[in-house]
């Protein structure tokens, strides 16, 4: 095990940063906030940690902590500015934010090392520390997917108006999405620069958005498990795909496109549908034994009265309904 670990150290590290980067975009998506700002936070985080270590000779952990705090605050400010925008407008504003970060990195002169970037960021940061940090963060994210908080996040995403009626402060949740996304992205960038000891303008930018999105789309957008699946696949796949050799990029592209079109909830979504199907079969078997409501072959529920209800629902579409009722005619099928 440890031989495998050492031989693939770089890939293990990339999986961890990839996972956090993917989460930095998945968490807001899960709240219905279409923000790619996590990629920009990753860029800020990478440079900030690098600068703190190189120019201010900070230790690894304080540098990372300060970085994550800083990117969380930047996330909050960004969110306060743009969280009122909807859908695609918000998405593109955050893309613009990410790209501005890249341009600033190139134009940062001595501070950011301009187009060559920063080198020799060497600390005592270990892969073990990296692993512990990632697992801790993962646990926090996982907690936001269960219980009351999980339900509230689901409600804010699927139906903001309903959420407001259920006493959920939607704006606060949307802002929280920006803050969490900022912290996650900053952490991912900071840890990556510490294990790689270098960062340049080419390491951040539009490619990061594409990478994070592909992990989420293929893995699954609704759970940290999906992000994990995606991070593992897209960190290890290019290595495995060397078999296919020169067409690696193309295969990669086809996988992403097919997943985006046909598996909107990703591999984890497919697994989830599978378990749900099994649960349903079991439940119905139990229910049938008790003589309760049963789901029939086409998945529609047919307890005693509900067939009539469907007919009434259809009839309800007819505007003449009220007149019929009042004039004493029986209602039902038109």
């Amino acid at each position: 095990m440890s031989d495998f670990f050492n031989a693939n150290l770089v890939l293990v590290q990339s999986t961890l940063t990839g996972l956090l980067l993917a989460l930095s975009i998945q968490v807001p998506l899960r709240m219905g906030v279409f923000s790619f700002a996590g990629a920009g936070s990753y860029g800020i985080g990478a440079y900030a940690t690098g600068i703190l270590v190189l120019r201010y000779e900070m230790d690894a952990l304080p540098a990372i902590a300060l970085t994550a705090l800083g990117t969380a605050v930047i996330g909050l400010l960004l969110g306060a500015l743009i969280s009122r925008l909807g859908g695609l407008y918000l998405a593109m504003a955050t893309v613009a934010f990410d790209l501005i970060i890249s341009v600033i990195a190139i134009n940062g002169g001595e501070l950011t090392g301009a187009s060559t970037g920063l080198f020799g960021i060497i600390t005592d940061f270990t892969t073990g520390q990296m692993f512990v940090l990632t697992v801790a963060v993962l646990a926090l994210v996982a907690m936001s997917e269960v219980g009351r908080l999980g339900r509230r996040v689901d409600t804010v995403r699927d139906d903001p108006e309903l959420a407001a009626s259920m006493g959920i402060n939607v704006r606060r949740y949307r802002l929280a999405a920006f803050v969490v996304s900022g912290a996650l992205g900053g952490l991912a960038g900071g840890m990556n620069v510490l294990v790689r000891s270098t960062v340049g303008p080419l390491d951040i930018g539009f490619g990061l958005i594409v990478l994070a999105l592909t992990m989420i789309i293929v893995g699954g957008s609704r759970s940290w498990k999906g992000a994990l699946i995606g991070a593992v696949i897209f960190t290890w796949l290019p290595d495995l795909l060397t078999v296919i050799g020169e067409w690696q990029e193309l295969v990669y592209g086809v996988i992403v496109a097919v997943a985006a079109i046909f598996l909107p909830r990703g591999i984890y979504g497919v697994l989830q549908d599978g378990t749900r199907w099994v649960q349903r079969v079991r439940r119905d078997r139990r229910a049938a034994a008790r003589g309760g409501p049963v789901v029939d072959a086409d998945g529609g529920l047919r307890p005693q009265e509900d067939e009539a209800a469907v007919l009434v629902a259809q009839a309800a579409e007819q505007p003449v309904r009220e007149l019929d009722q009042l004039s004493g005619r029986t209602q039902g099928a038109p």
């Binding site: 349903r280 998945g299 209800a309």
Partner: peptide
């Protein structure tokens, strides 16, 4: 919800 009739 998808398994239930409209009235339910």
């Amino acid at each position: 919800p998808a398994e239930l009739s409209y009235g339910t």
